[in-house]
Every structure is written in structure tokens, then in C-alpha cells.
């Protein structure tokens, strides 16, 4: 469970989040929508302590993030835009192992997790391939595997589809759908809800640092009009 309690945050005196409260249960698939600069990225980076609130509190599994950063970061996996810049090694297996190595796990457990994570993103058996030689969609999936190898309860993805062509995007979506079906919570920020609305349990929309919509997809469509969010045609 991820819980925001009255979180406020400012960049250089400009309020980017104002008194945001939100609770996300395990296994939920939540979409974060909103115009450019509405605060989605800022909000999500609080989930694992990459940003710390100016006031208020963020809790992961009832523990404040600031009290146990390691727990927050291993329970909430995070994947950013531009997967190309998120790899620490030249080959797939060495990169996916980075998270579990940092957790100090045994070599055996690390190998098991790398295998499982690659399996979950449909990249099983490709440990030795050079990341540089992979397609954009494959790179995105390896980046997701890097987060999954920490065995998080939630996976946060911030605009994961930028730069991906349609088949690549679909291959990533399909993996998210199966992860969600297996019980991993997914928090996905995007401008374009057209292909993802059907997968979600819940849509949270932001404007100017506030949550202005928090509805199941069926009811969110109407509320989203006027927020510069692309929604599927009815």
C-alpha cells in the first residue's frame, strides 16, 4: 500500500504539489493523467524517496518512506522515460542483476530473480545480449525487468511509451497487463490514455499540483475533458 498524507512540495518557491492525499492499495492498476507540468512526475517520485515532501508524509506498507528508504525503493520499483539512460551495464543480465546485488542477496537468489524478471517481460534466456543491440521496446522491457528484480509490490512507470512505435508499445502494455494480473500494483503516468484505459482500475488526474479526478475508468472519461488528456473515443 502506498499512502500520501497531505503532501506538499515546491521547486524554488513554486508549489508543485499542494496538500495531496491519496491511497493506493496493493494490486491496483492506477493511471495518472494530466497536462504537462501538472505534477505527475513530482508526485510519483515521492513514492520511493527520490523527492522528500516539504510537508506531509508518504508511507509504503505503513512505514514512512523517509524512515526506510531501502524498503521503499525495493517495494516500489520505478522506471523512467528514456530507458536507454537507465542501464548500468552493457549486457542484459548484468544490468538486471544490479538491483538485487545492491540488496546484498546471495548469488543464487540474484540469478533466480534475474531469470524470473526476464521471464516476466518476455526476455527469458537473453542475459548475454548487448543492450545496445536491442530494439526500443526490448530496452523498455529490460528496464522494467531491472525494477522487477527487486521483487516490488508496486511498479511505477513515468511516460514509458515515449519514443516507442505501436508494436513496441503493445509489447510493453501486454507485459504490464500480465504483471497486474499476477498481483503487482501498477502506477502509470501518461498523456495518452487511449490504449491503457481498459487495463486500469482507477484514473487519477492532476491539475496544477492538485488531484482533480479520482474515478474508475468508466466514469473518468467525462471528468477528463478539458485536461489536455487524450482519451479513447466513446
Amino acid at each position: 500500500m502506498i499512502e500520501f498524507r497531505s503532501v506538499s512540495y515546491a521547486f524554488d518557491d513554486v508549489n508543485v504539489l499542494e496538500d495531496v492525499s491519496l491511497t493506493i492499495d496493493d494490486g491496483e492498476f492506477v493511471l495518472f493523467a494530466g497536462a504537462n507540468g501538472s505534477g505527475k512526475t513530482t508526485l510519483l517520485r515521492h513514492c520511493n524517496g527520490l523527492l522528500t515532501p516539504d510537508s506531509g508524509e508518504v508511507l509504503v506498507d505503513e512505514t514512512p518512506v523517509s524512515e526506510n528508504l531501502v524498503a521503499a525503493r525495493s517495494n516500489v520499483g520505478m522506471v523512467f522515460q528514456h530507458p536507454r539512460d537507465q542501464f548500468v551495464a552493457a549486457t542484459v543480465g548484468a544490468d538486471v542483476a544490479f538491483g538485487p546485488e545492491n540488496l546484498g542477496l546471495s548469488r543464487q537468489e540474484i540469478d533466480r530473480r534475474v531469470d524470473a524478471a526476464l521471464e516476466a517481460v518476455n526476455m527469458a534466456g537473453r542475459e548475454d545480449e548487448r543492450i545496445d543491440a536491442l530494439s526500443g521496446g526490448e530496452q523498455s522491457r529490460v528496464a522494467i525487468a531491472g525494477a522487477l528484480a527487486m521483487e516490488p509490490t508496486h511498479l511505477v512507470l513515468d511516460e514509458p511509451f515515449t519514443g516507442l512505435d505501436d508494436p513496441a508499445k503493445r509489447s510493453v502494455l501486454e507485459r504490464l497487463e500480465s504483471l497486474s494480473a499476477d498481483g503487482t500494483g501498477v502506477l502509470l503516468a501518461t498523456h495518452d490514455l487511449r490504449d491503457v484505459l481498459a487495463l486500469a482500475d482507477r484514473v487519477v488526474a492532476m491539475r496544477d499540483g492538485h488531484i482533480v479526478v479520482d474515478e474508475p475508468p468508466a466514469r473518468a472519461r467525462e471528468a477528463l475533458s478539458g485536461l489536455e488528456v487524450r482519451v479513447p473515443e466513446a
Partner: peptide, 16 residues
């Protein structure tokens, strides 16, 4: 961006 990604993956002084 790399620095953020490494932090998100618990970049530690004492890994395996």
C-alpha cells in the same frame, strides 16, 4: 537520468 535510475534501484556501497 542515470543517477535517478541507480538510486531507484538502491545503488549501495555494499552490494553482493
Amino acid at each position: 537520468r542515470l543517477a535517478l535510475a541507480m538510486q531507484a534501484r538502491c545503488f549501495a556501497w555494499n552490494p553482493t
